[in-house]
């Protein structure tokens, strides 16, 4: 078929294209607006190479968590336990590492790689727990992962008992806080996670199934897709990404303690949704998540540069998230209108 024939049916032209691409255009315009705004407001400190490097560094941990969450949300599920799993995995890796004398934790020092493996096993197991609860028992992911949030927090509390641990295996230390040729390793790791996730989602069978299950779960089942496996798998991916982010985060912050990742749950969800991935599943992707991460990163960083009441900052973030949600739901209703209109 030739391209000229395709243009015949697109009667709406530019307006229609904008409407169909709203969820991709709006976040990009938001990002552009924020960058221009802060550049004009504070060109001397905001608009510098160092500062942009800073922003990338600041969003890296959120990025790794958001990668997993993108899979989950594309499947029309949610994972509220990501920050808590990050926390317990970070604490676990410290728990199995030799700590300095002044750290008063009855821990079990092991070889570095073994500690990392055990920590990965912890987040994998918690992810499996989420997966089994949602797919086998049929607990809605919202509730299941809410319970997991508490469970993981409880495990964190039992590991550290109110203390703070500082040492992590060398490899975690390097990747979390080291540099190579002046580039922080954590930015490279986050970039790799984003790249691999994008390739998986776009160019593999599994990725296609994730979109299809999110887009129309019943149709996926009638097409012979193993829907439960896909949903279980995205929850495990979500947990493992969080675990990696948690380990690197401990090195990044320089310590492992309770409630260290408190703000990361909201940040990661916000990044995915602000980027334009549909909360109803099936639409969006890593590209959207990257834009969402940059919007949040520029906003957080920019608000530090303009003198502003720090309490007002929280409110602004809330309003931006609300605006993103409105666009997200509005784009969805445009889409369903388009569907019913032609059916």
């Amino acid at each position: 078929m030739s391209n000229t024939e395709i243009t015949v049916v697109r009667t709406g032209g530019f307006g229609n294209w904008v409407r169909s691409q709203l969820r991709n255009i709006a976040p990009f315009l938001t990002l552009l607006f924020l960058v221009v705004f802060f550049s004009v407001a504070k060109p001397s400190s905001f608009l510098t190479v160092t500062n942009f490097a800073n922003i990338l560094n600041q969003v890296s941990i959120t990025a790794i968590i958001a990668v997993g969450l993108t899979f989950v949300i594309l499947c029309a599920e949610i994972d509220l336990s990501v920050a808590s799993i990050a926390n317990v995995t970070g604490i676990a890796v410290a728990f199995f590492t030799l700590q300095p004398d002044y750290v008063n934790i009855a821990n079990l020092p092991l070889a570095g790689p073994l500690a990392v493996l055990i920590a990965l096993a912890v987040c994998f197991a918690l992810g499996m727990f989420n997966a089994l609860g949602v797919t086998l028992i049929g607990i809605p992911s919202f509730i299941m992962t809410l319970a997991m949030m508490q469970i993981a927090d409880g495990m964190s509390a039992l590991f550290v008992r109110g203390q703070i641990a500082y040492t992590v295996p060398d490899i975690v230390l390097t990747l979390g806080s080291g540099n190579i040729f002046g580039v922080p390793w954590i930015v490279i790791v986050a970039g790799l996670f984003l790249l691999v996730a994008h390739l998986v989602l776009t160019y593999t069978r599994f990725g296609r199934y994730v979109y299809m299950v999110g887009g129309n779960r019943e149709a996926a089942e009638y097409s012979g897709v193993n829907v439960k496996f896909i949903i279980g798998a995205v929850l495990v991916i979500g947990a493992v990404c969080s675990g990696v982010a948690g380990m690197l985060g401990v090195a990044y912050f320089g310590s492992a303690q309770q409630n260290e990742f408190g703000t990361y749950l909201l940040d990661a969800i916000a990044a995915v949704v602000v980027g334009g991935t549909s909360l109803f599943g099936g639409r969006g992707g890593i590209g959207n998540t990257i834009i969402g991460l940059l919007v949040l990163g520029v906003l957080n960083n920019g608000l530090d540069h303009v003198q502003i009441d720090p309490f007002f900052k929280i409110l602004i973030r809330g309003l931006i998230l609300l605006a993103a949600l409105v666009i997200n739901v509005y784009a969805q209703s445009l889409r369903s209108k388009a569907e019913t209109g032609t059916d």
Partner: peptide
């Protein structure tokens, strides 16, 4: 058909 197909794909 609705339960068989992916309308926005």
């Amino acid at each position: 058909r609705r339960s068989m197909l992916f309308h926005h794909e």
